[in-house]
Simulated scan of single mutants.
Amino acid sequence: MYNSPRTVGDVMTHEVVAIGPDATFKEIVATLAEGKVSALPVLEGDGRVVGVVSEADLLHKEQLRDSEPGRFGSVHTLSDVTKAEAVTAEHLMTSPAVCVHTGTTLAQAARIMAQRKVKRLPVTDAEDRLRGIVSRGDLLEVFLRTDTEIAAEVRKEVVHALFPDEAGPRVDVHEGVVWLTGRVHEAGLIPVAGRLARTVEGVVDVHTDLTAGVTGGGGRPPGSGRGAARRA
């Protein structure tokens, strides 16, 4: 079991396929195919990341080949035209590269990927030197946590933190969905408990069936029969 939040440094790939600015178009295509990746960091000097070449960058050349003479530039940006005519990584790459540091949380990295529409992010140190790479698949590893692990962390980080002097809610987890049921003394803490439970990594959804001052009589989590859901 691990405590939230996990960072990019916990899940990144350390062995990274990279290229230099002088790599030719065909070398880049071959390296992508051999490494079975969709993008390559471009390194300069002592391993500083100066850009990234992706499959999308390379496809501009194919679009140019299939366009009517003189028409490609009229319907595409100058950057697209430059990449379509480029033959080395220096002119093909997207620069500056979108990178993250090892201490970036998985949630932050996922947000950056979604906003910038990229599938992989180079991981760099304070001097922009490459330390690894993180992919969408790496970020999804948190959802491999077992129900038992999730329930234990919800009880420790949510129930014990908010309700230290009382029995607190019962915690059930089934397929990553957390159910908080029972009685608490302060009604104002009920929505807080739900929000905090959602921050635990691996949680798919949260249902709160809590009442203040009286015994909660709500429903049970789906599949919560004997042996189905895990209790912390």
Rank of each mutant, 00 (worst) to 15 (best):
D66I: 03
F72G: 13
V53L: 07
V98N: 11
I112E: 08
P96W: 13
A30Y: 13
A161K: 15
D57H: 09
H160L: 07
E149S: 09
I133M: 13
G132L: 12
D125H: 11
R129Q: 12
D138T: 04
D128K: 12
F72P: 05
G103H: 15
V50E: 05
H76D: 02
D80T: 13
R116I: 02
V42K: 02
E141K: 14
D46G: 14
D80N: 14
S67W: 10
L92Y: 14
V118M: 07
T124D: 06
Q108I: 04
E127C: 09
V142M: 00
K36G: 06
A151D: 04
A84V: 07
V37W: 10
A161W: 06
K119W: 08
V49W: 00
K119V: 09
L32H: 03
H160M: 11
R129A: 10
C99W: 02
V50F: 06
G103D: 15
D128I: 09
Q63T: 08
A86F: 14
S135C: 01
T94W: 09
S74V: 10
V75A: 05
R145Y: 05
M93G: 15
A86G: 11
L43C: 02
V87L: 10
E44M: 11
V75I: 09
V123K: 00
G51C: 02
G45W: 01
K117M: 01
G51I: 00
D125S: 08
L121D: 02
A126R: 10
T102P: 03
A114S: 11
A97R: 04
A107P: 05
L40A: 08
T77R: 14
T105I: 04
R65K: 15
T102G: 00
T124Q: 03
F72W: 14
A126E: 13
K117F: 09
S38V: 07
V52Y: 01
E68T: 12
A151N: 06
E85R: 15
P96Q: 11
S135A: 03
G73R: 15
G47W: 03
P41L: 03
A39N: 03
V50G: 07
A86E: 06
I133T: 05
T77M: 10
E141T: 13
K36W: 04
A97E: 11
E90N: 11
P41M: 02
S67A: 15
E55T: 09
V49I: 05
G132R: 14
I150T: 12
T124V: 15
P69F: 14
V154M: 01
H160R: 15
T82F: 05
D147R: 08
D57R: 01
A56D: 05
L106T: 05
V159R: 15
V123L: 03
D128N: 11
V49L: 03
V87I: 08
L92E: 03
L78F: 14
L40P: 06
L43G: 02
V158K: 02
A114L: 12
L144A: 14
T77D: 06
P96R: 11
V49F: 04
K61E: 00
L59K: 13
K83E: 00
L58C: 04
G51D: 06
L130F: 07
H101L: 06
V42L: 01
G47H: 05
R129S: 07
G132K: 10
M93A: 13
R111G: 12
A30H: 12
H60D: 01
A56Y: 08
E153F: 08
D138K: 05
A89I: 14
A114P: 04
S54W: 10
P122E: 01
V52R: 04
A152K: 09
